[in-house]
Design a binder for these strands. Structure first.
Lengths: 211, 211
DNA sequence: AACTATACGGAACTTGGATTCCGTTTGCAG
DNA sequence: CTGCAAACGGAATCCAAGTTCCGTATAGTT
């Protein structure tokens, strides 16, 4: 088959990503992503680049060729998580019970954070990264729809605004990583917050400062 | 050895702290604490030691003589905050309305964190420091009393345990520092959580794993 | 089989920040 | 007024990452 030539312009049937990469490069990129996902999930954002490289059975240089900066790598990983979040949101928008849909979305957001320390830290102290990723997948609009729908059905108190959902998610995330005696108790707090969101409201919320 | 000098009766009338320190040392120590308090409150835990020194109009060496380590300095500052928290807790234990007492304590804990970014970070990612400080002032017992009292009065749902109060405080703290669109909205979340704590419970909380 | 653009590995470099060191200054007891 | 231990200041040192560099290896092509 060496003679044929045919369509040689760039690789064809790509495995669904990154065009024009040499086979080994693609393989390594995947390895790096996989290793990083695991490491950052376990150790948080200060897992080290050399460790990522080692875990991926690759040299540091290779990691840096695919992700020029540690932040780029983090952003890439965060991006994936947000895609999952957005998927979940869309899924719950179809839920028979709008209220349960919203609750499950909240529970889900707490769970993925419980499973990924790096994500917690992004949510908790990287507004820029989080903002970018959220916007990229349209999470904001999705939250808004989730909220409106649950309010229309009468189960969600009327005075919450969509922005409060991501904020709650962040707050819950910060707690899932609790060590010591509090470890593993976070699901209880999720339910407490959910009860607080349920209509009718007992407290009148202070007026938000701006939009 | 120099002849003797024996034990010289430490100077009396100390201004209520650190015995046997030379006057200038005492003064500087205060300056360092004040400067650090401000800097860490504004910039969080990664404010730098040289900056603390500069702000205190003192050399780095001096900072280190009083606090051998950055962590020691942080722990000292955190200690002070926890003293305030404990005071507030005792105060609210006297409140006429047990439920309002608990709520005000929660609001207060959110507020001091909103005013001190460093404290938020200690609460959010320094279990050791926080644990130590909390224990030193007996905060745990105080939370327990606050909880029991509010449950006895029938306003606080029966299924929450004292440990959940500090956890809630941490979660709220993580949110007070929100930038961007969410900034300034945290008091609303505090009220939502409070509503979730109010009896009767709508959700049955998952059973805590251990004690 | 030879060729070359791509990729690779990982030692070396850079940086930012905590901490140390030591010559000088100062409070204060005698 | 002196003497000296207690304090000081801050340049210098150490260290832990992140990031760069460049000689070598290899996929894909002719």
């Amino acid at each position: 088959m060496t003679t044929l030539t045919e369509i040689k312009p760039k690789s064809h049937q790509d495995t669904s990503f990154e065009p024009g990469l040499r086979a080994d490069a693609r393989r390594n990129q995947q390895a790096v992503i996989a290793a990083a996902k695991k490491l950052f999930a376990e150790e948080g954002l200060d897992a080290q680049m050399p460790d990522v490289a080692r875990a991926a059975k690759v040299g540091v240089g290779t990691v840096y060729r695919h992700f020029p900066t540690k932040d780029d790598l983090i952003a890439a990983l965060a991006g994936e998580r947000f895609v999952r979040l957005a998927e979940k949101a869309r899924e719950e928008l179809e839920a028979e019970d709008p209220w349960e849909g919203l609750c499950d979305f909240i529970r889900f957001s707490a769970q993925i954070q419980a499973d990924d320390r790096g994500l917690c830290e992004v949510m908790g102290s990287r507004p820029e990264v989080m903002g970018g990723a959220a916007e990229a997948v349209g999470l904001e609009k999705l939250c808004d729809q989730l909220v409106k729908r649950a309010q229309r059905s009468g189960d969600l108190r009327k005075d919450v605004e969509w922005l409060e959902i991501p904020m709650i998610a962040c707050a819950l995330g910060g707690i899932t990583k609790a060590h010591g005696p509090g470890a593993g108790r976070w699901p209880r707090l999720v339910e407490i917050v959910i009860d607080g969101l349920r209509a009718p409201a007992k407290s009148k919320l202070p007026k938000p400062l701006s939009t």
